[in-house]
Design a protein around this nucleic acid. Structure first.
Lengths: 335, 335
DNA sequence: GTTAGCACTTGGGCATGTTGAGTGCTAAGT
DNA sequence: ACTTAGCACTCAACATGCCCAAGTGCTAAC
């Protein structure tokens, strides 16, 4: 039995199964794909593939379906990226239009990606390490509560309420505000940890406690506020793609609601925008996603975009869409 | 046949059906509830109820289930609010702790409500009409793009990117910023439409165009940015509560994703925090929610909280939870 | 107005039979 | 050493028929 044909058979099985959602048998295979051999030969090949754990039969006398391992081999070695259709290219292009908000762009992106792939799309807020501090604002909400706002020149705004521990004077806050502003305006967000201590040190002793608290807030904002958030769209696709198919969507919805889970999932994946990363079925660290796959990649400076869907998905097309969208995102938001 | 007993029968049917998820028959009814009559009498009553369209039989020889109209009568006239359990009270109370962000509070609220009711919880961002302008910031992102930030003393931060139409100078922006800040700091957000024009009028002619654009942005932020957003949690409950039950969750997920739909839905409902409003099945204006009910009420100054679930839900308990949560929200965020 | 009794309806469960897709194996062909 | 035709075998899915339990509506008596 020839190695290339074996792979060809696996490919055919994956493609047919993805398309029909039904176990695929030897006879149907030879009919739909013109491999130059008979069904009996295919059966032999299939037996080997099954032995290697690449495909499995739901019951004795049914066709085969790919295993996680089978899909893995498929995406790693067999599949080749399908080019996007003209309409799809156009849809992505229109993202470029309208010089809007980061939020706006991300929202439209995630929506588009979910429509393109018919899956649940997820996007992480972009890392803005290179962003510069544009403005800092402290707002007294209650005697012991301060709202800290950090505005970057990229247009991202972070906010956080801080508990000061003791009563705060409005004038003290004003003074600290101009001090902080004077020292860190124009600084890279990423450099805040190095700069902030010296700002505190320069404060008059009676303000130092408060300054410290505020600085902590700013720092938390700088590395925290945004890139720890995700946006998603297309959860309804879960229900649609699994009509008459028992991927229990409950656990998946749970996972999607847990931002922490999704963030870990995404950050565990590669971020090379040229090649997308795929995590298949039980490869996922989260149990609820045992029957789901994640296709994701990085954009900009390391944040992730991707989709989540059933393991039985059209990987080539999906990967192409994710990659294309990531590229455009990188371009719009500037690497 | 006595009117009170008829209602009693309807109540029993609703309660049993909600509990068992199965059509309930006359015999089971007399056993579980000690109505002092025989099953035959109940049958007669049921026939009348069916004639009135309050209950229906899925097929000839099955028990009855409540219709939308039946549920309606139930919530309007029969049901009495169940008190919350001690544990539930405690859970809600703990919301009071931690003097946190509005975002934080809402997020925790919606999560809590979804756990309390085992449904999808939805909360609208609070109306902040009484809030005062605390700070205004204009940030130049690109030659023609300005980020407008509006900070209220309540801790809410609004932001929006504006297309200026022509190149904007950094210094012009600075001058406008202090002008705006000087004129509207401390003003109620709700009064901005009246105040802003005079600010523009006072600007030097060469800045008036830009000032106008910026004012538009501010105004959009003031009535737009927040209260048009909703937060939700517990979508996974949809899947759980409908295991072995055919409420097609696809359309429901779609509705939930369309913020516009949800906002209309919520704003169509009453906002008296003392009594919650219920919209049952086909009463909902959106087709996808024909098998769903919404239980909601207002909090604070008119924003809504509520839940969405299958028409077959435990209305008394759910209504109690929604009402309690709304009250606490009102208290925390201040009328 | 209530109730017992009864004939009637009907979905669900179960046992049984049938079908067809699909397999694995063997033996023959290249 | 592969490939292939042929064949016996397996098994889910479907169909059929049967019975049962739950439930109804009606009638006649209380």
């Amino acid at each position: 039995m020839s190695e290339p044909r074996k792979l060809e058979v696996l490919r055919a099985i994956v493609e047919d199964y993805v398309h029909s959602r039904e176990p695929v048998g030897s006879k149907a295979l030879v009919e739909r794909h013109h491999l130059g051999v008979s069904s009996a030969t295919i059966r032999n090949d299939m037996a080997v593939l099954e032995e290697e754990g690449l495909i499995a039969a739901p019951h004795t006398s049914a066709g085969r379906i790919p295993t996680d391992k089978g899909y893995r081999l498929f995406v790693d070695r067999i599949s080749q990226v399908k080019p996007l259709s003209a309409a799809e290219r156009r849809a992505i292009h229109s993202l470029l239009e309208g010089p809007d908000d980061v939020d706006d762009i991300l929202e439209r992106t995630v929506r588009l990606l979910s429509q393109l792939t018919n899956q649940v799309a997820v996007v992480q807020y972009p890392h803005s390490n290179r962003a510069l501090v544009r403005h800092v604002e402290f707002v007294l909400l209650a005697p012991q509560q301060v709202l800290v706002v950090l505005i970057a020149d990229t247009g991202s705004v972070g906010q956080k309420v801080i508990d000061a521990g003791s009563d705060v004077g409005d004038d003290a806050l004003m003074r600290l505000r101009s001090r902080f502003l004077g020292s860190i305006a124009g600084t890279q967000l990423a450099l805040l940890p190095q700069v902030l201590p010296s700002v505190i040190a320069l404060c008059p002793p009676e303000l130092r406690g408060l300054a410290h608290t505020l600085a902590n807030g700013l720092q938390a904002l700088s590395d925290n506020s945004r890139e720890e958030r995700i946006l998603m769209a297309g959860t309804a696709n879960l229900a649609r793609s699994n009509v008459d198919f028992p991927l229990s969507i409950g656990p998946v919805l749970e996972a999607l609601e847990e931002q922490v889970v999704m963030l870990r999932l995404l950050s565990d994946m590669g971020d090379d925008p040229r090649g997308v990363t795929v995590s298949i079925g039980r490869e996922n660290p989260y149990d609820g996603l045992a029957e789901a796959s994640v296709v994701a990649t990085g954009y900009g400076s390391g944040a992730k975009v991707g989709i989540l869907g059933p393991t039985r998905m059209d990987y080539p097309t999906t990967m192409a869409a994710v990659r294309a969208v990531a590229r455009y995102l990188s371009r719009i938001l500037g690497g």
